[in-house]
């Protein structure tokens, strides 16, 4: 990355008191960049501080040290430029689905009249498949999937430059998850928003992301690798599994989470300039089919080590 990326996270460190007078370092010196319009997923085991990074990006938490720069300017505190979709939807239960979305639109555009606000909100609700009388229901009368749709509509309707998704599909069943992932891709495709998303689901990350950041286990977690998803868009869940790179990438991720996230844990990087994650690019689509079996080294060194 020669020029400064749109969003750059520089030397982010979070320490908490551990209750015994000492401090617990969740992650240290986390540094990475995100380009404008990119969809980036971050994967790591529980406790590595993904949610903390998310909260810091959202401005809801303060890091112990380090800075976040958006468009070259340091950011602090929450802002409408950074929209958030929370894991537990965080809809206001006394408002209808529509009012939950207009709540956000009104905050974004205080000068708009009521009709325009509602029209804009309905447009985004329709994008995630919610229209008709459903929009007048309260969150308690909606299924989990519908609630998360409302939450996504609220975030996208605000057209913030950066969208932060904190495990948005964590509480949904696999089928609903699939449908909403498709809707998310569609809404994101229509916009030029940058998305940063936490997930635990490798397949979801491969389907959605341009790049996947891998974190080592905590404490002293760091962003170790940045894996490029070399599968062209538009992607569909049935087609990407046929792509030559799919299982190569998938295996690499599984190996990282299975072994190397542990092995690399606690290793503090000594060199000051080696803060950013190592870029991993796995691309087998150009190779001949018979060359695949022989390839046990190079871009994907752990490719054939799945079964050990």
């Amino acid at each position: 990355m020669a020029s400064k990326p749109f969003l750059s996270i520089e030397g982010l460190t979070q320490r908490f008191p551990d209750g015994q007078g000492d401090t617990l370092t969740v992650f240290e010196d986390a540094s990475f960049g995100i380009e404008k319009g990119e969809f980036v997923c971050i994967i790591g085991h529980s406790g590595c501080g993904k949610s903390t990074i998310m909260n810091i990006l959202a401005g809801l938490a303060e890091p112990t040290s380090g800075v976040i720069k958006m468009d070259g300017f340091e950011v602090s505190g929450p802002s409408l430029d950074r929209g958030v979709v929370f894991q537990n939807y965080s809809l206001l239960p006394w408002l209808s689905a529509l009012k939950n979305v207009t709540f956000g639109v009104k905050a974004r555009h205080p000068d708009w009249n009521k009709k325009k606000v509602e029209q804009h909100a309905r447009e985004f609700l329709a994008k995630v498949g919610l229209d008709g009388d459903v929009v007048h229901r309260k969150p308690s009368q909606l299924s989990g999937g519908m609630r998360q749709r409302v939450s996504i509509a609220r975030a996208f309707a605000n057209q913030s430059e950066l969208l932060l998704l904190d495990e948005p599909f964590g509480a949904l069943d696999a089928l609903t998850r699939g449908t909403i992932q498709d809707e998310l891709l569609k809404v994101w495709g229509d916009s030029e928003q940058t998305v940063f998303m936490i997930t635990h689901d490798i397949d979801e990350a491969i389907l959605l992301a341009d790049r996947i950041l891998l974190m080592t286990n905590g404490p002293f977690a760091r962003v170790a690798e940045s894996v490029e998803i070399t599968i062209p868009r538009p992607r569909s869940r049935t087609e990407i599994v046929e792509h030559a790179n799919y299982y190569a990438i998938r295996n690499h991720l599984v190996q990282f989470l299975g072994h190397r996230s542990k092995e690399l844990a606690g290793q503090q990087v000594v060199e000051a300039d080696d803060r950013s994650p190592q870029t991993v690019r796995i691309d087998k689509s150009g190779e001949l089919p018979d060359a695949r079996s022989a390839d046990t080294s190079g871009g994907a060194p752990h490719l054939l080590a799945v079964n050990d």
Partner: peptide, 9 residues
């Protein structure tokens, strides 16, 4: 819910 208010400035 308070966080929703905060992220909406």
């Amino acid at each position: 819910w308070v966080n929703v208010a905060r992220t909406h400035e």
